[in-house]
Write a protein that binds this DNA or RNA. Structure first.
Lengths: 121, 121, 121, 121
DNA sequence: GTGGTCTAGACCACA
DNA sequence: GTGGTCTAGACCACA
């Protein structure tokens, strides 16, 4: 499931976080589901256990996962909603950045056109 | 003119680059204009000269500025067009990111609506 | 009677110990009473027998329970007093923690007020 | 300033966090103050840099500190208030635990007396 | 087996 | 110098 690109400039632990969030967004991971264990995932994707731990840890501090020592990590009940909200926040942020481009002289209608083309494939 | 936020996680040299690009986009800086000297800017904004140097170097590497040994740094003739292109590339990249959100379940029409509202203030 | 929360960060064996102690404090369990067998409790609350064993062992080590090989575990005669003492020790410890808060700038009178309100419902 | 007890059951990184919070409570550390650098503190108290990093990192995720890569860690502006609130929450939690003891048969008045004695030295 | 903590040490970007 | 990331590997408590 999870694949990391060691050459990427985005930290491995962040790639893992992003992919897990993505799987929750897509419904591949649901509240209560168990995440692959630290050691197991570590071997599956050839990444040091500490790095996996760091990723999982951050998922816990953001209330997306829950750690149950001795049993594993689980997707929290609130995870789907937290991620839905964060996706919306992301959209808003992106729109603000687009808006900023109009201040730099890019035409509004052209922006809308460009986006529509993208969205409709 | 230039202001840096030392508490920001975006590197200071990048903040400087961004602001200079912005001033070019807005027409405050034109082809041939002289940039404030490394030493002078260093003192004006209380930033280590090495950091200014790094920013100016990168502006040269991307053909936005030209270094004239003994005289200083100047905005290149191609700068306005380079930056216009880079703004368009930025727009394209932002649209791709927005597109990615639709894959995570955010409705396309809603996105367009959201953006239109932003653009029309 | 006994319920464990597998999602809690307090170890399951400790949850079991605490609840048995509590039942003794409340008089639901008296000196000489037989504890549910390891196997039986294991099935009742869906917890690994090793975990129950560990809890019972610790109750024996602290003289709250007695193991009678072949017959089971029983509440010791001293259990009620041991637990009463441990409750007092707990109170003392909590008061020390409260005291520590005053060193961090919380007003003493306010603390007393806060506690009184709690105690009087 | 900071001292850790390697034999303690509370993790070193947590001891560090607690002591920094304490210093903020006491006003020894104020908003904007720079924390000792990771490497420096690491040597001062003979603890691995990674452990210091973990402590500082957690201070950042709780908005008590701010990391400025290349410059250091600083006490955030909100830190004093965050910690004041957390101290109050701690008090409330302790009072709840004390309250629970009354359910186990400890006399209310005796509790108040006990606490008053402690508070008045 | 599963998570939690810690050390030792390396390499990178940035100031 | 300062923080950030990562690997390798050890030891512990708990299930």
């Amino acid at each position: 499931m999870i694949k990391v690109d060691v050459m990427s400039r985005v930290p491995i632990y962040e790639q893992i976080i992003n992919q897990i969030k993505r799987m929750i967004s897509l419904g591949f991971l649901k509240a209560g589901d168990k995440l692959e264990s630290v050691r197991s995932l570590s071997m599956t994707i050839s990444v040091n256990p500490n790095t996996i731990q760091k990723a999982y840890n951050e998922l816990c501090t953001t209330n997306i996962a829950i750690s149950v020592p001795g049993r594993g990590y689980f997707i929290s009940n609130e995870a789907p909603e937290i991620i839905r909200n964060s996706n919306m926040a992301m959209l808003d942020k992106l729109c603000d950045q687009v808006l900023d481009l109009t201040n730099l002289g890019i035409d509004k209608d052209m922006i809308i056109e460009h986006l529509k083309k993208k969205l409709n494939g």
